[in-house]
Simulated assay, not measured.
Amino acid sequence: MKKRKIPMRKDIVTGEMAPKKELVRIVRDKENNVAVDPTGKMSGRGAYITLDVDVAKKAKKDRTFDKVFETKVDDTFYDDLISYVDHQQARRELFDNGKA
């Protein structure tokens, strides 16, 4: 059986390459609205961040998405991002441990 290529993306906070499934896409649309894109299919400029709470907190501290998207991003977005990443990280740990 042919081995499938794993799509890789760069985490904008750490600068490390990781498999796309281990990252979450953040998107800015034409109206400069910034949102989490769990499906990875929303239209707009996208950037990826690792599903790690510490990385999300660092993004908030450094205002990473303000710089990447060249727009003012509300603190509420960063708080929502941290809670989303925390939830996804907990789900991943719960279900990955169940497989082993």
Rank of each mutant, 00 (worst) to 15 (best):
V68N: 11
V13W: 05
T50M: 09
E16Q: 07
A56P: 07
L23S: 10
I49P: 02
N33H: 09
K5H: 04
S83I: 02
Q88Y: 14
D66M: 14
L51K: 06
M42D: 07
F69N: 01
D79K: 10
K72S: 14
D54L: 00
V73T: 11
V55A: 01
V73S: 10
R63A: 01
E93K: 11
D52W: 04
V85C: 12
D74V: 10
V55N: 03
V68L: 10
K5A: 06
Y78A: 02
D74Y: 13
K21I: 12
P19D: 09
G40N: 04
T71Y: 11
D96R: 06
P38A: 07
D79C: 14
D96N: 15
K20V: 12
E22T: 01
A18W: 08
E22S: 13
K57P: 03
Y78R: 10
D37W: 07
K57W: 05
E31I: 06
P38H: 03
Y84H: 14
A35P: 04
E31Y: 04
K61H: 02
K67T: 00
Y84V: 15
E70L: 14
T76K: 15
R63L: 06
N33G: 13
I82F: 08
V34T: 03
K58Y: 01
K67Q: 09
D96H: 12
A35S: 13
D74I: 11
R91I: 13
E70P: 04
G46T: 02
K67F: 12
F65K: 11
I12M: 08
K10T: 03
L81I: 11
D11N: 10
K99G: 00
R4D: 08
Q88H: 12
M1P: 14
A18T: 13
T64I: 01
K67G: 02
A35T: 12
I12C: 03
M17N: 14
I12H: 09
K57E: 07
R9P: 04
V53E: 08
R63F: 01
A47F: 06
G44P: 03
G15P: 00
D80C: 13
D74W: 10
R91F: 13
R9Y: 00
T64Y: 05
M42V: 04
T50P: 13
M17S: 15
M42F: 01
K57G: 03
V24H: 05
